[in-house]
């Protein structure tokens, strides 16, 4: 009795066995193929994100710094403690840095990254299409300008009279004393500089979302006698709730972790910690100091705490905007 798949004498054994092998191979191939496609991304993410993340997390429990680098065995749990976190929350300047971060995120978000972005999107979608497009393209300039060049421009703009353009305008209006505005009003510039870049992101998303709203809705509202404001408030805004949630959440997290513009512009000054935000503190503690006493462990703790804050804020946003309802299947599809 032959078992299924076995071959008798004189028959060629290869084809059936080969078929079986092929089947197994193709099944295996089918299973592995997605992983093979994912592998490059997975390797990159693991090497440059996951492993550093774990290392930063571990480092945040150590006192690794420039003086004990190469001496301290930071990977040994015996050298881990919560001291860095205690130091953060008992730091005399902690309330100031936290306050700065909240002010920076809230004002930039409200006035520019969401507020200004929405205003520009609404205006440019309600005017001549080509003019709107050109105007939006102009607003993209800060984003596509290399950040160092962009900051150098702002530094020049805010320069003392007669070189600083802003001071020249203020002089004509009889305002100000021609001083270096970055030193006298650093916060205004920190928010403007970041906001001008940040607004373009929301502007693009909101514009496309508004343009995607079927014209019937706005036409119907006009026929019903709605004013422009009423159309925006009761038709457009509810229909772009999803991009609003996305931009608000994404930009909050982005602002929380961004510091490069502030670093180049004021480096947290001009007065002690005057414009220092959380992410900049993490950078300063971990990677800079005049005499080189960079505290990698302590700086990592600041960074890890910021990640935790970011996650908490993201969860809050998802709850407030009722994310679950937004991603629900349309009720019509369930019927």
């Amino acid at each position: 009795m032959k078992k299924k798949g076995q071959t008798g004498e004189g028959e060629l054994p290869l084809p059936i066995s080969s078929k079986a092998k092929n089947r197994t191979f193709s099944r295996l191939q089918g299973r592995l193929a997605p992983y093979a496609f994912l592998a490059p991304a997975l390797i990159v993410v693991t090497l440059f994100f996951f492993i550093p993340l774990v290392m930063v997390f571990i480092l945040s429990f150590t006192n690794l710094d420039m003086t004990n680098f190469g001496i301290l065995e930071w990977w040994r749990p015996a050298n881990w403690s919560l001291d860095n976190y205690v130091k953060i929350f008992t730091n005399r300047f902690f309330p100031k840095i936290l306050g700065n971060t909240l002010i920076y995120v809230a004002l930039t978000l409200a006035f520019f990254n969401v507020g200004m972005a929405l205003v520009i999107a609404l205006i440019t979608t309600h005017i001549n299409r080509q003019a709107g497009f050109a105007f939006r393209a102009l607003w993209l300039l800060p984003r596509i300008t290399p950040v160092v060049v962009y900051i150098m421009m702002w530094k020049a703009l805010s320069g003392p009279a007669p070189m600083g353009i802003i001071n020249n305008f203020l002089g004509v209006l009889g305002i100000g004393r021609g001083e270096y505005l970055l030193n006298t009003h650093p916060w205004v510039f920190v928010i403007l500089v970041n906001g001008f870049i940040g607004a373009s992101f929301g502007m693009i998303l909101f514009s496309s979302a508004i343009e995607a709203i079927p014209k019937d809705y706005t036409t119907a509202s006009k026929v019903d006698g709605a004013t422009t404001w009423q159309t925006i408030r009761y038709v457009i805004l509810p229909m772009i709730k999803w991009p609003l949630l996305f931009v608000t959440t994404y930009q909050t997290l982005s602002l929380l972790t961004s510091f490069e513009q502030i670093m180049l512009l004021t480096d947290g000054g001009p007065r002690l910690y005057q414009t220092e935000v959380w992410a900049l503190t993490a950078y300063h503690r971990a990677l800079t100091s005049y005499f080189g006493n960079t505290q990698w462990g302590y700086g990592s703790a600041w960074a890890v705490a910021l990640v935790v804050i970011g996650i908490i804020m993201a969860i809050i946003y998802l709850r407030v905007f009722k994310f679950g309802e937004l991603v629900e299947e349309p009720k019509i599809d369930r019927l």
Partner: peptide, 15 residues
């Protein structure tokens, strides 16, 4: 280069 990064460069380069 600033002194801080200059020192970091040496220490990390040594590592």
């Amino acid at each position: 280069m600033d002194w801080g990064p200059y020192l970091s460069e040496f220490v990390l380069g040594f590592g």
